[in-house]
Nucleic acid binder design. Structure first.
Length: 447
DNA sequence: TGTTCCCGCCAGTAT
DNA sequence: ATACTGGCGGGAACA
């Protein structure tokens, strides 16, 4: 649907400020223009909404590939079209009390991007509980207040499964509470997904090359799709931080961990590309930040865990000051960061350690993998209140404290039990190492 | 030159 | 049949 047809200015009109989505604006179909109370009302969001300085020449931008696109856009700057920036804008646009549901077309139109990009954003936002899909084309805005619950749920689920306890009966887990009519069918699939994911697990990473070793054939195509969905990948990426408590992790490493062994080079590349997308969005939510690994200087991401709208960079971060080092979309900037927390050093080695455990991670990742959209419904947990601004320092601090506590409990109670002895042993090593590292870490951080 | 990641093709799904 | 979703990877901007 996002085919050619770049409708040049379609947006500019509706989207107050300087929106301009040169080539992208292809606001597809969609019935008429919704009233959109002009996006101009963005709160005091500073750098929001695409400030594309230069209006690319007319409709321009070729349809097809980026070739045509590229050659006539001198002023083209990908920074201004980054997912991260887009996400910030998206948040600025919808993170308000009066926002209830979000229409994809509307969002695309207002932000001046093509629908396809909105899917990207929305999928990761949903993964972290900021919004929920209600129906085709419809999402409900939960806001940042939904994040803690979503993360908690993610963590719990991860731990539950790591500990070998059977994955919740899908039906129960995705307790319809929040589902709307058009989603429940997915749950049906989840049932056999569970059963199947077991045997197919290893092919997950290599499916691309169509090399199903033992030709499971029976795999639901939709499963493949789900397994690779941006949403799921986001969750698993986040789980890496939540359960392994790695302080920093490079996208390579993440990809490796998520893919497991026998991955083709191309798979890695693709996975990493996706992770970049995800990381950019998570960064703009301030859930993670870009840094470098101490030893290798390799770019990596650090978990901040305290989602909040981008503007409020100063409020209670669960982590020391974090300068805006990551490629600050929108605000542009250096990509390179020089300083990084002391933790990185230790972390780097832990991460290495983890690599050996790739298999295991992979295993549980797979178990968790069933997370189709219907799988992560934070309904029962979600507060529904406390939306917006956690600007309140007190609250934030309390939360931080609580988080630390959580982790401590976690460290203590964390004792996975694999039915499989070998796994159990292997994992044991990993856990031990992790635990000691983690304890060090908490001691350090919690001042 | 390597890294980052935008863009849109196109296949799978839903209506 | 049409519309919605979203995986995927080419290739260009960026460092």
């Amino acid at each position: 649907m996002d085919a050619a047809a770049p409708t040049p200015a379609s947006v500019a009109a509706t989207a107050g400020p300087s929106t301009s989505a040169p080539a992208a604006a292809a606001g597809p179909s969609s019935s008429g223009a919704e009233p959109l109370a002009a996006a101009a009302q963005l709160p005091a969001a500073p750098q929001v909404l695409f400030q594309v300085p230069v209006q690319l020449g007319g409709a321009g931008s070729g349809s097809g590939s980026g070739v045509a696109r590229a050659c006539r856009h001198h002023a083209y700057s990908r920074k201004q079209k980054s997912l991260g920036l887009l996400c910030s804008n998206f948040v600025a646009l919808y993170d308000r009390d009066d926002v209830e549901t979000i229409g994809l077309d509307d969002a695309a139109k207002r932000l001046g991007v093509e629908r396809r990009r909105i899917y990207d954003i929305v999928n990761v936002l949903e993964s972290v509980g900021i919004l929920v899909r209600r129906a085709k084309n419809r999402y409900t805005w939960l806001g940042f207040g939904g994040v803690p619950a979503a993360l908690k749920e993610l963590k719990e689920r991860a731990l539950r499964e790591m500990s070998g306890s059977p994955v919740l009966p899908p039906m129960e887990e995705s307790s319809t509470a929040n589902l709307s009519d058009d989603e429940d069918d997915e749950k049906l699939e989840d049932v056999d997904e569970d059963a199947e994911s077991e045997k197919l697990s290893q092919s997950q990473s290599i499916d691309n090359t169509s090399d199903k070793p033992d030709a499971p054939g029976c795999r639901l195509r939709s499963d493949h799709r789900k397994e690779k969905s941006l949403g799921l990948l986001t969750q698993n990426f986040v789980k890496l931080f939540l359960t392994m408590e790695v302080e920093t992790i490079s996208l390579d490493e993440a990809a490796r961990l998520l893919l497991g062994e026998g991955h083709a080079e191309s798979n890695m590349r693709t996975k990493v590309r996706r992770l970049y997308d995800i990381a950019n969005v998570l960064s703009s939510l301030n859930l993670i930040e870009k840094t470098q690994q101490a030893d290798t200087r390799k770019p990596a991401f650090r978990w901040l865990g305290q989602a909040k709208p981008k503007q409020e960079n100063n409020v209670g971060n669960a982590v020391p000051p974090a300068r805006p080092n990551k490629r600050a979309f929108g605000t542009d900037l250096t990509n390179i960061d020089n300083k990084r927390g002391r933790l990185d050093t230790t972390t780097a080695s832990k991460v290495k350690l983890m690599q050996g455990a790739g298999n295991i991670v992979k295993t549980f990742e797979r178990q968790l993998g069933q997370g189709s959209r219907s799988d992560f419904v934070y309904g029962p947990f979600h507060p529904a209140v406390a939306k917006k601004q956690e600007t309140d320092d007190q609250t934030v601090k309390q939360k931080e404290r609580k988080t630390i506590q959580d982790w401590e409990n976690l460290a203590v109670s964390f004792r996975p039990q694999y039915q499989n002895q070998a796994l159990n042993d292997l994992f044991g090593h990993y856990v031990e190492a992790w635990k000691s590292w983690y304890l060090d870490l908490t001691r350090e951080t919690s001042s």
